[in-house]
Write a protein that binds this DNA or RNA. Structure first.
Lengths: 210, 210, 210, 210
DNA sequence: AATGAATGAGAGTTCATTCAT
DNA sequence: TATGAATGAACTCTCATTCAT
């Protein structure tokens, strides 16, 4: 099974699922975008839903892996949040199509498929929740409803996938720094991170590691 | 043409489009949810896309109207932002299904239909942008990228439509206040709104007016 | 739902399933034979398999009903067998296509559908077995393996559905009489049925009753 | 071309065609059952239909050959019939899958392929017809419609392929004897075959000869 | 106001088969 | 000998929509 053709199929699916939605994407659209006949498509995937689930799984597992590496040995909850924000923003900017699929098409999964993906997503969001809760407990953050804060910040940071462009006026590291500042401001942290930018650089190191 | 039947159709559409997406909703699903045959459906709507566009238009025009009434005579940019946030949050909580359709299904509109709706949405978002820009100009807000701030805050506040429940532990007015605080924190405003709650009350008054 | 159109669909299905087999019959063949588009077909049936199962169920229930009426008040096992044979032969001649479907396409049913139909078939075949067993017990029949006899006779009589033609040289009542003689001969019964033909006439009366 | 692999393919085809039917069997099912890829399959067969026709041809030629050897030098029509019955029953029991394919899938052959196979089958059935006709002419059999008798008996004896099991309570030679008795009974022959069992033994000798 | 009947187009998926390697 | 890759055609079934009643 040609590795590169499979990648082409996945890439085509990511692009189409992201822009037209899963249900808005026909198998023939997919085939055309991948430069294959619709029958050949089925050499490289199971069902259309299999393909969707696989895209989601890979994406979520990658971000979970990156998060684990970024948070290892970091104890300060504010620093942990900052890193999560930077990772999230940069992931949602650099894989904007993929993340839109992950964030937006979970409802398209069948009842039997959904739990696996939702579990991965929850596992990731728990990292956020834990960091926020700890920060509150230690008096470093001020928010009256930590759960709401998590939801609000996740949505805020995910949104970048809807408009980010590498050609835009702001460099991605500046954007990430900006989001860190906004988020910490929203959480009532006195933004005393020595260097917001050093966080961004650490994230870049991890996400570009082999 | 029975007024209430039409409302039932629209309500069914809002529910299904919100939960399954436009392309994920069949005309037969719609008919069943409205308690009609699929043929009868066409007495109360044009095409499926007409119905979607109409739902969006009505929703956007309502929020624009509410915003206009809320901002009339309010000059303080911080107060204006606070009011927009409260309106947005409360609208996205109380009409969570409808707003999910408006926010999430624009891509399902055909090229010819989209501009009208996008124009309404842009008109609404411009209110936010203007308030933020003014606040920055007057030194009341501190944000290095006002456009990014607008996008981030809109996403953050819209997100409530994905999880809000009237049965939840937080009352909506508390939630709105919380969002105002988070947003102003993100914008670097010293949250010197005398009474965040009075804003919320004003919004409630306007959105419940005839 | 037009009664006659539905009948046309069923009749087309019976003809095609009988001559080409269930898997050899496409939904488009079916539609064409019924004079409908393939989409319209689905107004008159569920799935293709639903249609098959329904055809089988109706056919088996009809023959069970006829058998019950024919055997009521008949105690002589030889007479019972004779009646079952006549009914079977005449049914397999007059509904030769339908019976070929019932006899030959059970394997095409899905695992979940098959039990219901098989149960009906078994119920019918039990009537044969009971009559044969009783005849043996009472010394009226001579066969060393009653179960084998039942299987052999059923196959023998069912076969008529593969070649019977109303235009053939033998009238159906003569054929039925012939089969009764062969079967009773095979069972070692001295064919002392006073009048084989009276049995045939009784069967005709029952199968043509409302 | 590995002899044994080809045999595996044929055996897989026989099993699947017999249990699911020709049209119900996919080329991939076939490949899987034979332990090959579907492409490799085509080294060992022509088209799917070629394979079916070949299976039928081989089977029919074998039974014709066996019949010829069994009937050589046998002049008594009753003895000839008995031998044909025993051969038929034993063949349909020992090659139950193969014979089900031959008997049941002729309709799956294309118009151009069918005549050849039908000719072989007719050649075989003519042996039966001739024996029955001769028996009638010589007054040894009593049947009013010899053609019907042939059809009925063939069906009766073929049926064994649908239920025979080597593990069943009856040994095959007893079964064959039973069928001979039933058939001769049906034909009105006073079953004065000195030894039905000697017929069975002769058949076994012939069918197991090289 | 309401619907059964109808349909062309298209959905996702599998078909039998070929061919370069 | 064996197979991954490929495909046009076909599969069953659903789509959004129309129309006569």
């Amino acid at each position: 099974m040609s590795e590169t053709t499979e990648r082409r199929v996945r890439q085509a699916a990511i692009e189409l699922f992201a822009t037209r939605g899963f249900h808005g994407t026909g198998i023939r659209d997919l085939a055309e975008a991948a430069g294959l006949s619709s029958a050949t498509l089925y050499h490289y995937m199971g069902t259309k839903e299999d393909l969707l689930a696989s895209i989601m799984r890979v994406s979520l597992e990658r971000v979970l892996d990156n998060a684990a590496r970024l948070l290892a040995d970091v104890t300060s909850p504010v620093e942990r949040i900052a890193r999560l924000i930077a990772l999230h923003v940069m992931t949602h900017a650099e894989q904007k199509l993929e993340t839109r699929v992950v964030d937006g098409e979970i409802r398209a999964l069948s009842e039997s498929r959904r739990p696996e993906i939702v579990a991965l997503r929850d596992q990731y969001e728990d990292l956020w929740q834990d960091a926020i809760d700890t920060g509150c407990r230690e008096g470093l953050l001020r928010t009256s409803a930590p759960r709401v804060a998590r939801l609000a910040l996740l949505e805020m940071c995910s949104g970048i996938s809807h408009w980010y462009s590498a050609d835009g006026p702001l460099k991605l590291d500046d954007l990430a720094a900006h989001y860190i500042e906004m988020a910490l401001g929203a959480l009532g942290a006195n933004c005393s991170i020595e260097s917001v930018h050093s966080v961004v650089i650490d994230v870049q190191a991890v996400t570009r590691a082999p």
